[in-house]
């Protein structure tokens, strides 16, 4: 039985992509239910900690969407964000987060169909990489110095 469904955190900017999600809803466009939306004022508001936070909590994928370049409600928020995202995505993937987990898009509030389509694309991409395996923060389980030492020792001492 394969009951696993990807869990994806979507950070949508208030002025464009969140509006698109809204419009997709009222237009009754179909898109997968795997995304949990968090509304942010602007894609420029996205702190890398948010994205790491989502992954640490076990999200299988993260999707950030904002206004098209030039359309930012705050004039240039998404321009700054774009540089941050490029570097963050590259750094995370360089350190071993699979490329299919992080997604970015520009979707205006009129592009309901693009929203639904991108949602499908994102969910399928995350489904293809499978459940998150790395970078999940769990409850501390080691309760004594011996436990981790033993594991490390086996490697070291054989």
């Amino acid at each position: 039985m394969n009951a696993w469904e990807p869990k994806i955190i979507a950070f949508l900017c208030n002025w464009c992509s969140y509006g698109a999600a809204d419009l997709a809803g009222v237009s009754r466009l179909q898109y997968p239910v795997n995304i949990r939306i968090i509304r942010v004022p602007c894609s420029g508001r996205i702190n890398p900690k948010f994205i790491l936070g989502a992954l640490r909590h076990g999200a299988d994928g993260v999707w950030v969407s904002g206004c098209h370049p030039g359309d930012c409600h705050y004039i240039e928020g998404n321009y700054y964000a774009r540089r941050k995202f490029a570097l963050l995505k590259s750094l995370l993937e360089h350190t071993g987060i699979e490329p299919g987990r992080l997604h970015f898009s520009w979707i205006s509030s009129a592009e309901a169909s693009k929203f639904a389509e991108t949602a499908r694309e994102v969910v399928e991409a995350v489904r293809a990489v499978g459940p998150a395996r790395h970078f999940i923060k769990t409850k501390p389980t080691w309760d004594d110095i011996e436990a981790p030492v033993q594991a490390a020792c086996q490697v070291e001492v054989g």
Binding site: E146, Q150, C153, E156, V157
Partner: peptide
């Protein structure tokens, strides 16, 4: 003490020859 990287550290050792 067990050699780890460029230093030593106290570790659980299970083989006396190590």
């Amino acid at each position: 003490p067990v050699k780890e990287g460029d230093g030593y550290r106290f570790r659980l050792v299970t083989r006396p020859d190590k």
